[in-house]
Amino acid sequence: MSQITAERDPHLHGGADADSGHAHSGEHAKYSFLAHHFDSPAQQFDSAKLGMWLFLATEVLFFGALFVGYAVLRSRFPEVFSYASHYLDTTMGGINTGVLIVSSLTMALGVYFAQRGRKLALIICLWLTMAGAAGFLVIKYFEYSHKIHAHLVWGPTFYIPPHNEFGNEEATALAHAPTPAPAAVGVPVHSAVAAVGPLGTAPMVDASVIKPASVGPTGLSAAAVDHRLAGGGDIIPYEMPSAHLEDPNMPPNTHLFFSIYYAMTGLHGIHVVVGMFVIGMLIHRATRGDFGPNYYTPVDLVGLYWHIVDLVWIFLFPLFYLIH
């Protein structure tokens, strides 16, 4: 206390200031988590929250610039976007949106249980959030692998026909995937071969190489299968992965759609991976019993981060998958 360093009104010395100093040291003794340069848990919590919100602001601008790039490209090439969007699988994208929303809910519930000091419920919620993140990435992996094998990619590779790389192996993997297989809505394509299998066992169709759907979102509905079985349209089989190159309707520079698609969803995917990492650390700390009604700041902050990841996807989904 000898380091009296600020000019100070004398009467404060004996009275209020000594009291507040005492109170502060009391706060530090009471709350072990309180850092030395904060006076109260409320001040520490408010600082952490503001810091996190500022970080989220940087995240918004980080993604924001990509959205600007998207807007510029889309305003220059509207036909590319409305055409290429149909190569994306709305079902998978929709399911992923749902997965992220539910994982956001479990994260928010996790914050609630942390605030109430219910350790087990918090840990369960965090594991559920983690499962949601993992599920999102698994679905995203299947989407990516289909497109990459069909050379629906960025750059000049988009214009190079693949050499039958997309073989049976992938088809098997797809058949056994836990996710619903994409339905096929065939569109007449020359030299197409009908490849119709029983529902759920061998969906020998890659939705990502399907031309613009003419009959709306069929999903896995029986109607779609009936439509297909009734010969309502020819189906593009795996053996024609360069279908986009053979489509006379493909507008020039379509690869740009996929460039920005991979850039934005890829960056988002990296954020999901980072999210899984920090949620894992939270699970570790929650199991150790670090959190309770007095101190749950890390849960709250990771929650905010996870919600912003969800929020970005909420914009990505309609902007890429749902272009009319």
């Binding site: 750059g155 520079n253 460039s259």
Partner: peptide
């Protein structure tokens, strides 16, 4: 590294 073409005029970029 990957030549995504968003900024590259020869790839239609800006």
């Amino acid at each position: 590294t990957l030549n995504i073409g968003i900024f590259n005029p020869s790839m239609g970029g800006d």
